[in-house]
Amino acid sequence: MKVFRRKWTSGSHLYVMYLPALILFAVFVFYPLFEGVQISLTNWNGYSQHYQYVGFDNFKMLFTDHKVITAFQNTLVYGVGSTVIQNIWGLAYALLLNQVFFGRKWVRSAVYLPVLISGLVMGFIWYFIMQYDGGALNDIMLLFGMERVDWLADGSRGVKIILFATSMQFVGQAMIIYLAGLQTIPKTYYEAAEIDGTGAWRKFFNITLPLLMPAIIISVIYKLIGGLQLFDLIVALTGGGPGSSTHSFSTLINSLYFQSQNAGYATALGIVLFLFILCVTVVTHKLISRNEVEH
């Protein structure tokens, strides 16, 4: 009893504080994941009380299904593409808006504002811009005497439009992360560099970028996960079409699970997506954190 009391009072009771979080994590993450693995090995249709185990058939089918291959390619484009665009653009915005000028707060708000709009609403807004009959872009083209274009009819163009739309919507998030990062860099470094006569580019590459690395890691991983999971914007803008040419993994999983009633197959795809995001995130973190600098 004395031993227990000594241990308890020595601060180990704080471990008990983990318990609620652990319970919630187990109930809402581990249990569904375990269930998901089970479902992925069945031919369950998503609602019936009856199903059969089919082994790894669902996983084998994934590698020959053209819809999955297209969705995989698109997911990479949405994930990597939007990460690159948002981080470069967001950093540029942050560098600009870190300067003092009139209306700076307004510009910051304007850049960040689209983040607050739901992905579905943003998807519909872009649809109304891009649609063939009555779309804003085509109306402008008609004003200039040009022919209307069915912008979303071509799958590869649809992917680019989705990439652009999601990048523009969430660039404000990257900007905020970089602004916060920039404000942690001591001004003395820049002052010292100026005394030494260092140019702007040199200051950026030798001071700003290395000291901004923690913010870059957070932003890249955050954007990568968001891009790889892109869902609502696609649903509203193209519905994954034409055909299945603009599907991401997430929208394809939704379509397979709830529309095609192929829950086993959809869950197998979900597990592959989970493992894929896990690998990409870990590798990205390792690669970027090598360049981290302490100050």
Binding site: N45, G155, P242, G243, S244, S245, Q259, S260, Q261
Partner: peptide, 20 residues
């Protein structure tokens, strides 16, 4: 069988778009 309305929703657009 129940569920094939959704197959029609996949096959139809697939045909029209040239994907199938």
């Amino acid at each position: 069988p129940n569920g094939m309305w959704n197959t029609l929703k996949v096959v139809g657009p697939g045909l029209l778009s040239g994907e199938l």
